[in-house]
Design a protein around this nucleic acid. Structure first.
Length: 280
DNA sequence: CTCCAGGTGGCGC
DNA sequence: GCGCCACATGGA
């Protein structure tokens, strides 16, 4: 069964391919297939029309679409369709590079993903190319998850280090295991991050070994609703260097400059910079 | 072959 | 605080 909803100021391709999610792939016919929570979703956009299919259960094999009465609200929530993109963009500074990125990729939205999967995925991301991050996440889901879903905190916490290393995590395996155990034990209160003040939530995540400012900010932005979180990786660093040549930039100054939705601005800069470095 | 990838922790200074 | 470097693995 296919549901159709009307969308405005939304760009499915940019949203799913901008590097914030690692489980989406595009078919030849324009459908995107991904695993969200424990379900397989398929999405396709044609102008203001968004088509959505959902099937519970196995990620492998043929999806078995089922009617989903509350589908619309879950889809709206995941895609952050409740926020006004024009209002967000209006809060951005007038930097030419940022305005160009917004124009080029209009409709890119920061998703609301599941916090544990997001934290784990970005722990796996350090000094890895996006294609490899996708492979690691797929390995984790296939080898440790149930029916293709990303493995729950408890599953990872009880895994052996070699089993994680077999998912191509390399030296990051010990960090993922530590993160799972700290979340499971309550040493890191992952579920409470969305309700915490930004600075407090950042400190909470920095308790985890292998999690620094970059990974913590990715988790806060992409899964905890902290839109001011501004992850700085090598690409964004390059972009900032061009925007502000020989300027001393601290994270608080950067967040102040880009405003309450600094993280959204960051994602436009990141995507534009990555395409600039590696044209499609 | 070399260089680099959505980084971080540990070291010396 | 800073500047290095190791860390696993694979793509370009």
């Amino acid at each position: 069964m296919t549901q159709r909803i009307n969308v405005t100021d939304f760009n499915l391709a940019a949203t799913l391919e901008c590097g914030q999610a690692f489980r989406w792939s595009r078919d030849a016919d324009g459908w995107y297939t991904g695993v969200v929570w424990n379900e397989v979703w398929r999405l396709r956009q044609d102008g203001n029309n968004l088509e959505w299919q959902c099937s519970r259960g196995p990620a492998r094999g043929q999806p078995n679409p089922l009617p989903e009465p509350r589908a619309d609200s879950r889809l709206h929530d995941y895609l952050t369709l409740d926020l006004s993109l024009p209002a967000i963009v209006a809060s951005f500074p007038q930097d030419a590079a940022l305005q160009q990125a917004v124009e080029a990729h209009w409709g890119l939205r920061v998703l609301r993903q599941e916090p544990w999967e997001t934290l784990a995925s970005f722990i796996a991301s350090s000094t890895k190319q996006i294609v490899q991050i996708r492979q690691i996440v797929a390995h984790l889901a296939e080898r440790l998850g149930e029916n293709g879903a990303f493995p729950a905190v408890e599953r990872v916490a009880r895994a052996e280090l070699p089993a994680l290393a077999a998912c191509k995590l390399g030296f990051r395996a010990k960090y993922l295991l530590a993160a799972a155990r700290m979340v499971e034990s309550g040493a890191v209160r992952l579920a409470e991050l969305p309700a915490m003040e930004y600075g407090r939530a950042l400190e909470e995540l920095l308790k985890i070994p292998g999690v620094g400012e970059k990974i913590a900010n990715c988790t806060l932005l992409f899964s905890c609703g902290h839109h001011e979180a501004f992850p700085i990786d090598v690409h964004v660093q390059r972009s900032l260097k061009r925007l502000f040549p020989r300027r001393k930039l601290t994270p608080p100054k950067i967040r102040a400059h880009f405003g309450p939705y600094a993280g959204w601005a960051q994602q436009y800069l990141f995507y534009a910079e990555r395409i600039r470095a590696r044209p499609a």
